[in-house]
Amino acid sequence: MLLNVENLKAEVAEDGKQILKGLNLQVNPGEVHAIMGPNGAGKSTFSSVLAGREDYEVTEGTVDFDGEDLLEMDAEERARKGLFLAFQYPVEIPGVSNKLFMQTALNAIREEKGLPALDMFDFDEYVQEKMELMGMRKDMLERSVNVGFSGGEKKRNDIFQMALLEPKLCIMDETDSGLDIDALKVVANGVNSLRDPNRSFIVVTHYQRLLDYIKPDFVHVLYDGKIVKSGGFELVHELEDQGYDSIIQSHEAQLAG
């Protein structure tokens, strides 16, 4: 198993508000899991906790990542071990070229794997190949990280980084939010082209549209800090037809009963 989340509870560090209330999830290598849920269910918190954002505090539970205790690691260590978070809002870093940023990141991860650092020339060659794969325009490399990028370009840039860093587990935190259909297809194609028996995905989203293109193996509904229903791809369409209400109601009824 690549990822095993057991009874994960977490709260907002600042005010102690509990968001995750006993979440369980198992992900095997090569699987694509979608996590859906209404606003406020804890979707983004879950992504942030997995990636190691310090705004949240884990109060209970365990997360095992590739045989190691993920919660013991800081954010950079998680990334080095093969966890990748695609951001809902990729961050702008003025003055740092995309190229330098990615070269620094790639070499950090290569260091972890015991591989030699790539110099500028080797990196150029490596990057070229990946750019063609992702249909990236060359000038994006020379520009500052995400500065002046459109929403779609930012997301594409994040997926491009994913392709470069070749992670074991990709967490997509509402990558589809605010994307038009063309940009959405680019993201979906990127993900699909990176699918691999040794790479797993957790796709966190509010809407089914992205999932129509990605076709996840498993779909989970997150509500009130817990996964309340799991199923296959068909669950996406059930949600599409009926919305979250019926699932939530039956969950509440179960609790009451």
């Binding site: 990636a51 990748f84 990615m102 950090a108």
Partner: peptide, 28 residues
């Protein structure tokens, strides 16, 4: 801090991230 976290989430050490961001700021 969001910029620092973004770097960390890509495997860049916190210290290096701060340096990268600072240098870019200063050298504009």
């Amino acid at each position: 801090e969001n910029q620092v976290f973004y770097c960390q989430a890509r495997g860049i050490h916190q210290h290096d991230a701060v340096q990268l961001i600072t240098k870019a700021f200063l050298l504009e």
